[in-house]
Design a protein around this nucleic acid. Structure first.
Length: 274
DNA sequence: TCAATTTGACCGTC
DNA sequence: GACGGTCAAATTGA
């Protein structure tokens, strides 16, 4: 393997990511100002992460002796104390349930649960040491478009009006409505992204900003623990915990808000029994 | 009738 | 054993 430390690798990846975003900025230069807003946020997030990673790398370099097991915040874990899921994979059908993907993880404090994306709730749990339960969502298009995006929503203990929303993974789905509404933007993005990364992932770094706010399918609901009836709002705080999907990111922010949690589409796998 | 949500159970990790 | 994440049958609602 490489001799570089994990932190150094992260730093390197982040630097690359920033470069890509910069290139993207150039491509979007002729696009609406909203696009630039998103790019700005991408760059800002990368810069912050790079700064932090560099500081950590410098700090750890002095104590580095032989074997370095320190890991960069493995954002994929809920509590941040999980082994790299390796032995978990093999087994019977239900094995490997734990989150093993190491994709980008972004945690935000939001007043609103609406981020313009279509989410589908698949679970809710009481969380130890938390007054409120946590709701689990995945992208509505998980099965029909293999979109791996997920999010977890939990009401803040200290501020009941705020929600702590953790976005895991990126949206790889395409929202037809959004694409139709802003084809040029998507064209730029996908084109640029493909040049960077074949996956062409689309992520919203600024959901609340409604930077590409058009209309689209949105089923943003959260019930149960009082996670419902929320409206789009601003004043969100974002913190990037980790990111391992460097290349393509960006706007798939279909900021439309279908007022009610209606049904949109359903992944085939859910279409069962009855 | 169909699709989304609820909720208990299951599973892997710590 | 505790805990968190996910699955899937049952339930709810448009």
């Amino acid at each position: 393997m490489s001799m570089e430390t994990p932190l150094a690798r992260v730093t390197d990846d982040l630097i690359k990511g920033r470069e890509f975003a910069t290139q993207l900025q150039g491509l979007l230069r002729d696009s609406p100002k909203a696009s630039g807003l998103i790019v700005d946020q991408i760059l800002h997030a990368f810069s912050r992460a790079i700064h932090a990673a560099r500081a950590a790398a410098a700090a750890s370099a002095s104590e580095r002796s032989s074997d370095v097991h320190s890991e960069v915040t493995d954002g994929a874990s809920g509590g941040g104390k999980r082994k790299p899921a390796s032995a978990a994979a093999g087994g019977n059908g239900r094995a490997c349930r734990r989150r093993t993907q190491q994709s980008s993880v972004v945690t935000k404090s939001m007043k609103s649960l609406d981020d313009g994306q279509a989410w589908r709730k698949y679970g809710q749990k009481e969380i130890h040491n938390s007054k409120h339960s946590r709701a689990y969502f995945r992208c509505t298009h998980k099965y029909d478009q293999q979109c791996a995006a997920q999010r977890q929503v939990q009401r803040c203990d200290d501020d009941e009006g705020m929600f702590r929303v953790t976005y895991i993974g990126v949206h790889t789905c395409r929202d037809p409505a959004a694409a139709a509404a802003a084809p040029h933007v998507l064209h730029h993005l996908t084109g640029a992204a493909q040049g960077l990364h074949a996956g062409c992932h689309l992520i919203s770094f600024a959901p609340g900003s409604a930077a590409t706010a058009t209309h689209g399918t949105t089923t943003s609901t959260a019930t149960g623990s009082g996670l419902q009836g929320m409206k789009p709002d601003s004043g969100d705080q974002e913190e990037v915990l980790s990111s391992r999907t460097p290349g393509s990111s960006a706007l798939h922010s279909t900021a439309a808000y279908l007022a009610r949690p209606g049904r949109r589409d359903v992944h085939p796998a859910i279409r069962r029994r009855r």
